[in-house]
Amino acid sequence: MVMCACFFLPFYQMLITSLKTTEELNAYPPTFWPRVFVWGNYAAAIQYIPFMRFTLNSVILAIGVTIGAVMSNSLIAYGFARIQWAGRDLIFFIAIITIFIPFPVTIVALFDIFAKIGWVNTYFPLIVPAFFGSGMYIFLMRQFLMELPKEISEAARIDGANEAQTFLQIILPLMKPSIAVVAIFAGVACWNDFLTPLLFLNTEELYPLSIGLQFFRSEHNVAYSLLMAASAMVVFPVIVLFLAFQRFFIEGVTVGSVKG
């Protein structure tokens, strides 16, 4: 409970700030409960930036990236975890260490590639890479797959299943918890990513919410209540999705416990 309180505080603070009047933001010390609730801040925030448009863009991107990440990483992780082949460990290590490459110097050449094929100012550079997997999710899923006893696969093989069948019919259903984690991670990372869309998009109509949030900060000022209201609205759909996705964990457990 205490922990919940601690972790709830930042969000709470955000919510109350989003509901305060300009005068109340002036108060010293800051108040813990708004004297007047200014729901108008939310309406104002929606009007301050093309909120609906940006939200729709963010949703499109997040869906694309999530689908890509789940599909590719579960395949790839299976290849690294459940099949024994020559050179596997070396290639796996290469895949892992790519997460240690600092982005600022590779982004320049990566941009050159996408510019060459004419993908700048489209969603392709933001979504397509997700379909090729990423070191951190491959590693994550691989760790979970390594946990499943070998016997499960062997039993399937004795029953005459080939590799694809084993993957689709036996292993994939057991991967639900890690799939849920990767889906949440990839979706949220995309939802909050600021730099990649900023670099690749040149039209305001294509901007996601993460860039839109920057509009609340100008050279010398921050539109504080509005920023907090917008942030709360940015987070809200994610919370709903999270509550929905949770069921996968529960399901994961009933399936997983069979193996014990």
Binding site: P104, F111, V120, L199, N202, T203, E204
Partner: peptide
Amino acid sequence: LVMVPGGSTDVSKLMTAVRGGTGP
């Protein structure tokens, strides 16, 4: 007009775009 938020001395957006031939 296109808004490209970022620090005033930060050239990441401009640099990548101009290199890629997609600058303003």
